[in-house]
Design a protein around this nucleic acid. Structure first.
Lengths: 196, 196, 196, 196
DNA sequence: AATGAATGAGCGTTCATTCAT
DNA sequence: CATGAATGAACGCTCATTCAT
């Protein structure tokens, strides 16, 4: 089925909002500007999204869903927690690199927003991140990773490093590749947590 | 010498602003509320700070200065890049733990703010962070850390993990200790980057 | 065609603003008061006019346009520069007398405002005034007025006298008629500039 | 007697205020700016003048006093109402030309200000202007001017024309001489009102 | 479903002004 | 006298949001 006309409009609005938020910042962006650039009336935006903040919070839903489904699919095909971790980092970084505006919105306006926590968009992300925890725990249980590791902390290392790199990357205008960091990052990380 | 009366007022405003921003959020906070809580007129705030955003950007200057001076002092007393790195992480985490409001302002409203980059407050932080890079590079040169490490990436791992942990901590209302993560974090990190 | 609903609202705002500015003075008048008296929201005023000053500058546009079109129409029907000058003075004085609030705004807040010079409202007036210059020059060329007269100066006498009389009239609360001055003024003026 | 030190400060403030008001406009000018340029504290200004508006209203007092005393002195030496009128116009125009900032303040911010009417500064001017009326009435009584002339109107012609010329002159940045208009103006005027 | 038109509600900011020293 | 420091009191202006059509 082709997306209903109404779904298409919704997507146009979301994509435009992503771009405008990324360029101007959330507070600085105005509904007027988004409406103009999306060639839609301001009132139409409110047909699809409850508030300006609701519009912001709706941005990650779909693409995150896709990303984490892809991630789940790939993880099934890979053996070894280390390899899986590498795949996860690669998928995330690749996704951000391919969608700089989305990455900017996520890193600059969504993470760090307390209200976003109660959102279905955040729920999707939380579920996706559980996959990372699971991989780490599997690695520990399987003896591939050192016993006694704090899985929350290891996950924090993975996510924190990625967030830091991506945030720098979006704030400086995406000069160079994100992907280049995947292997060195994973190598250092695994060297620190793998047994033997 | 006691701080001049005027300096005292400035500090009161800054501390109050930190608290209010941390509680309400930057946008949601009003100058009126800050003025009221600081027992100062709104106009007085504008005597000391050019604008609401200027007030926000002025928050980190002094305490960051202190923190990084302390850090520099300690680093001189410690031998070994690994030990120095542990001290750095400890000092940062301890500082955030002791100043939750400041940590919240820094993590939620300052990092991720493009305009903050051009600020003298950010300059102080940038200079402070150079100390971390230097320690990492020294570790590599001294053969204590693996050759070929990307010092920017390692620094990103250190800072990113800290930022992630602290951000979670402030967003969830500071339930448990931050300090507990210092040793596990450093242990895993050093295990990954130390030679031998 | 009745004016579009939106044009009507605009006119109501303009008329109300004229009245309020005339009564209170420009600086003393507040948008709030104008909005209240026009039974319009303050925001609506900003839908039609960019700024409080923009609102002020928009006041003369339409009525001046009308006045000068009427003037042009009449001048075509009259023979003799002297007679035309009398008609001009009459039309102006009559217009001010019929619209004391408008006269007050024009005399007290628009003339003497440097920023008004760059305005389309002022452009209309400038064009209208050219008619006066043209009549004077025609009078000189036709030999009806003395040769060697400085048309700019004569125009200044006409306009200056009118402005002075009207300004006094609005500042003292419009006690007596303006029209009474038309004939004596023109008589003395023509006696001074007509040949023979 | 040399002016007391305090009188000197007062004069410096007045002169500076005249300049600043003329350049920036009354509303746009700030006490801060005047204080800075006069090298005086803002509070000092309030020692000498009650309010910002009071400062404005104090500007014409002294120089107008001087001007009208000079005028009275000269008028005693001149025979004939026409000649006196010429002297009056000359003195006024010469005075404005020599003090463009004062002329600007007078034309743009004082005349047209209702509150100025109740001021001692305005009183001086009103008294001065009576001299003009008196000359005109003398001219009529002496048969030099036409009988039946409305002296208020003739005075309005004189003052209105001057005001119009000077206002134009200050608003366009004083490009050319004001004095050039004296004789043509008086010539046309007298031709219109003199007998025979 | 789509929007043009209207607004409610709020807030940062500015200065003229005061007063203790 | 002179002033540095503090503030009270306003107000223009902006948008997110709504609703009749």
């Amino acid at each position: 089925m082709a997306p209903a006309k109404t779904e298409l409009r919704k997507k146009i609005i979301l994509d435009t909002a992503t771009k405008v938020f990324a360029q101007r910042g959330f507070q600085e962006a105005t509904i007027t500007e988004i409406a103009k650039k999306a060639k839609v009336s301001e009132a139409s935006i409110y047909e699809y999204f409850s508030t300006k903040e609701g519009l912001l919070f709706s941005i990650p839903a779909q693409s995150s869903q896709n990303l984490f489904e892809t991630m789940a699919f790939h993880l099934k095909l890979i053996r070894g927690a280390g390899n899986k971790l590498r795949a996860i980092v690669y998928l995330l970084m690749d996704s951000y690199q391919s969608n700089p505006d989305f990455a900017a919105v996520l890193m600059l306006f969504l993470k760090h927003n307390k209200k976003f926590l109660d959102t279905s968009g955040h729920h999707v992300i939380k579920e996706g991140i559980k996959q990372i925890t699971r991989v780490i725990e599997e690695g520990i249980e399987a003896g591939e990773f050192k016993p006694g590791l704090n899985s929350y902390l290891i996950r924090a290392m993975v996510l924190g490093t990625i967030e830091h790199l991506v945030t720098n990357w979006v704030m400086t205008g995406n000069p160079d590749s994100l992907i280049q960091f995947v292997d060195p990052l994973i190598d250092s990380l695994l060297a620190g947590i793998e047994t033997g």
